[in-house]
């Protein structure tokens, strides 16, 4: 059995991964070192975290959120996890198991919120009741519950596991539409505002191939299966398109997104209309909103009144995205 020919760029030991965008191969140890350095660089460049921050990491049971939680704990941050039970059938049951097992094995604290138990609805039902695509109903729910859990728990920063591919795909979509409002807001750090915690994305310098490799090397068991609602969405099509470009020209994704942050984002500063709106407190939950009732409370109102819709029903109906 011939071992792989390629050697680690740093120590010449047999490599475990090739990273075309760095034009290099790495052994396990030096691959992990590269990931830590990329995360530290992002955290420092964008002033994401301080040593005394009380951090809440939104975890889904997938690779990115468990990887970022693992890295932040390893880097010495005080970081708890937050798991939202979205009620997406078997996918949600399994993803919860992975998040809980990760926390349990490492003695970490996992905060849990269940849409069904606490708000009387789930994502498939909300999607049907509001006639929105599942990811839209899901996004409104997650954003609200991330904010409220962070504030309730006295956390100073909310961390999400968005990686370079996620951000490049969103940027690609915003650029295809020249959506200046969204482009102006697509930053890896959103500062705290009245009623909103500070939000940061420490993985923006790592691709998802790298975050998955981090988990494999570190022995982190994560849910490999996808959320069934994701199939066929635009986000995936954008990622595939960007990966096709990356294949021809390694480093393109990083240039596209990190170059946007360096060169374009400063030009767009202050161009977001959302920054201008005065916010008032939602009359039901107190969260900041431009209207009378916040988007989450409007969603809950309709979804909780609807009879539960099993996820299979939504899948069978076909997808209109």
């Amino acid at each position: 059995m011939v071992a792989s020919a390629s050697k680690c760029r740093t120590c010449r030991a047999p490599a475990i991964i090739d990273l075309p965008r760095h034009n290099a191969h790495f052994c396990a140890e030096h691959f992990l070192q590269l990931c830590r350095r990329q995360v530290t660089k992002a955290v420092e460049q964008f002033e994401m975290l301080n040593a005394d921050d009380k951090v809440l990491v939104a975890v889904s049971g997938g690779k990115d959120s468990l990887a970022v939680w693992d890295m932040l704990v390893e880097l010495g941050y005080h970081a708890d996890g937050l798991y939202i039970g979205l009620g997406i059938g078997e996918y949600s049951d399994t993803s919860a198991d992975y998040a809980r097992a990760f926390a349990r094995d490492r003695g970490l604290h996992l905060v849990e919120v269940s849409l069904r138990d606490e708000y009387d609805y789930d994502v498939p039902t909300a999607s049907r009741a509001t006639r929105r695509v599942p990811c839209s109903a899901c996004g409104i729910s997650k954003r609200h519950l991330f904010d409220s859990a962070a504030l309730k728990g006295g956390y100073t920063v909310l961390v999400t596991g968005h990686n370079l591919d996620d951000e490049a795909a969103v940027l690609f979509g915003n650029t295809l539409r020249w959506d200046v409002e969204y482009l102006a807001r697509q930053l890896p750090v959103l500062p705290a505002r009245d009623g909103f915690p500070k939000k940061v994305k420490p993985l923006i310098r790592l691709t998802e191939r790298e975050t998955a490799a981090w988990c494999i090397v570190r022995g982190i068991d994560y849910l490999v299966e996808e959320c069934p609602m994701a199939v066929g969405n635009k986000h995936l099509a954008y990622k595939a398109a960007l990966n096709a470009i990356e294949h021809e020209s390694p480093g393109s994704k990083a240039n596209f997104y990190l170059g946007f942050l360096d060169n374009m984002a400063p030009l767009l500063a202050g161009r977001s209309a959302a920054d201008e709106h005065a916010l008032n407190a939602c009359s039901s939950c107190g969260a900041p909103t431009t209207g009378e009732l916040c988007a989450f409370c409007r969603l809950v109102e309709r979804a909780a009144a609807h009879e539960p819709v099993p996820v299979e029903l939504l899948l069978r109906k076909g997808r209109s995205r």
């Binding site: 889904s60 997938g62 690779k63 990115d64 990811c135 899901c138 996004g139 591919d165 996620d166 969103v170 998802e208 191939r209 975050t211 998955a212 494999i216 490999v224 996808e226 959320c227 994701a230 199939v231 969405n233 986000h235 995936l236 990622k239 595939a240």
Partner: peptide, 9 residues
């Protein structure tokens, strides 16, 4: 062979 692409937003 493990796919690494996640679909959510």
């Amino acid at each position: 062979i493990r796919p690494v692409i996640s679909g959510g937003v």
